[in-house]
């Protein structure tokens, strides 16, 4: 118990001490997760709205597939990206493995189905009434899609938040494709794993606390944006 308390105190000391390495790690974590979330949302939200609002033969199958991928273990996503980006892989020439770019690609892959899946679910609930009402008022297809987005903006925002939460909490994929290289691809989760393994519980705990605070901060910000919409 004493040890844990000491770790807490040391953790706070670390946070205030402006340790260069720790702040580098925090910055990279923010950049990677935010970028992944933005890219994934830009692809997934329109896709989710279009799938949720249109009728086609393979729709049920596609939704089932997306729901399955929502539970895709991050390590597996990491493995796929690893194989694609490795030197002998189809995208090996870009030399992206063990770079932050690879981490973004892996995280986009992980959260794409999550945001798409939740968006489809939200759209499905309202699409019939909205489509009918828009058609009745003579609104065109693009306008109707926009109204659909407008009416589903709160659940869509939650979908994006869920995606972000997944990205910031995830270790397996960033570890695999990033390699946890000091000053380069080390993010908070991989650093926590490393420091815990080395027995540096204070550093691990400090990072854990910051990670939690960061997650809280971003959620709080998003909630504010949501309320202003």
């Amino acid at each position: 118990m004493r040890e844990i308390l000491n770790s807490f105190i040391e953790a706070f000391e670390l946070i205030i001490s402006l340790d260069k390495e720790i702040y580098g790690i925090i910055l990279l974590t923010i950049v990677v997760t935010v970028l992944s979330t933005i890219v994934a949302a830009a692809l997934a939200v329109p896709t989710g709205i279009i799938i949720g609002s249109s009728e086609f033969r393979a729709k049920r199958l596609l939704i089932r597939l997306i729901n399955t991928l929502m539970g895709l273990p991050p390590v597996v996503a990491g493995l796929i990206v690893y194989l694609l980006l490795s030197r002998k892989g189809p995208l090996g020439d870009f030399a992206l493995l063990f770079t932050p770019a690879a981490m973004v690609i892996a995280q986009v892959l992980i959260i794409l189905p999550i945001i798409t899946g939740i968006t489809i679910g939200a759209v499905k609930l309202k699409v019939k009434a909205i489509r009918e009402t828009c058609a009745g008022l003579g609104l065109g297809n693009i306008r109707t899609l926009f109204m659909l987005f407008h009416e589903c903006r709160y659940p869509v925002m939650s979908a994006v938040m869920a995606g972000y939460g997944r990205a910031i909490a995830e270790v397996g994929a960033v570890m695999l494709v990033g390699g946890n290289i000091q000053y380069n691809t080390r993010v908070m989760t991989t650093a926590i794993v490393l420091e815990t393994g080395k027995g540096n519980y204070d550093r691990a705990l400090a990072l854990g606390i910051i990670l939690l605070a960061l997650s809280f901060l971003v959620n709080w910000l998003l909630q504010h944006i949501q309320e202003d919409l």
Binding site: A129, I130, E132, T133, A135, G136, L137, G138, M147, H150, E151
Partner: peptide, 11 residues
């Protein structure tokens, strides 16, 4: 122009 039986108001 068509007004559905179930009224939907946009937010």
């Amino acid at each position: 122009a068509y007004m559905p039986q179930k009224v939907y108001m946009f937010d």
